[in-house]
């Protein structure tokens, strides 16, 4: 394994490190709360594993791209909001990748409009895709035809990360929270009955009883 490969898999190394750390804490700690923390770290490593496997390098979030949505939304007033930058990030990432420097400035400017439109219409994104007729394209307010061409080129090249592992992990997180809550509730009861949460002391008391 070359160094490059080794570094390229860095998220898996983190997963293994976290997994072993969590596992070690579960085995080695006597304090019950610390054991549960170890268990949590162990579960989180699995969440990281799933999210890593769903990510495609250069892939964006699986949301209809802003440029595509804006075609069907010609009537939305184009007001630039500074705080929309966060939403525009996937698009930015992509334009970096295509290294279309000539349109960089305009892209950035347009992103702000687009993302604003996307924000307003995300709930009905499906509909817009369907109504994305050639007429709507003609009505697109951006008159710069070059820029338009570059935009559609973006759409064709868009790669999405796989959303399914992330969705599965939402379920796993819920399960993890439920487990932690139950475990902590049990620890509260153990504390009430024994007056300690150190496992060796509890076992000692049981043996004496």
């Amino acid at each position: 394994m070359s160094t490059e490969q080794f570094l390229g898999l860095y998220n898996y190394w983190i997963v293994i490190f976290l997994m072993m750390t969590g596992f070690y804490i579960v085995i080695a700690r006597n304090n019950l709360v610390k054991t549960i923390i170890g268990l949590n770290i162990f579960q989180i490593s699995v969440i990281l594993l799933y999210v890593s496997m769903g990510k495609i390098s250069g892939g964006t979030a699986p949301i209809v791209p802003p440029s595509m949505v804006s075609h069907g939304h010609a009537d939305v007033p184009h007001v630039a909001h500074a705080d929309n930058h966060a939403d525009a990030r996937p698009h930015d990432l992509h334009s970096d990748e295509t290294k279309d420097l000539a349109h960089d400035h305009q892209d950035d400017h347009d992103n702000e409009h687009d993302s604003h439109a996307a924000q307003e219409s995300r709930g009905t994104a499906e509909d817009h895709k369907e109504t994305d007729s050639p007429d709507a394209l003609v009505n697109h307010p951006v008159s710069d035809s070059d820029h338009h061409a570059a935009d559609s080129a973006h759409d064709e090249q868009l790669t999405y990360s796989n959303p399914l592992p992330s969705v599965l992990m939402l379920t796993a997180i819920v399960v993890g929270i439920a487990t932690t809550a139950l475990a902590l509730a049990l620890i509260v009861r153990i504390r009430e009955d024994y007056g300690t949460i150190e496992e060796d002391e509890i076992l000692e008391m049981d043996r004496a009883a």
Binding site: V26, L32, I36, L39, T179, A183, L186, I202, D206
Partner: peptide, 8 residues
């Protein structure tokens, strides 16, 4: 305690 051990 038994339940917690099983849980872990």
């Amino acid at each position: 305690l038994a339940a917690l051990q099983y849980l872990i």
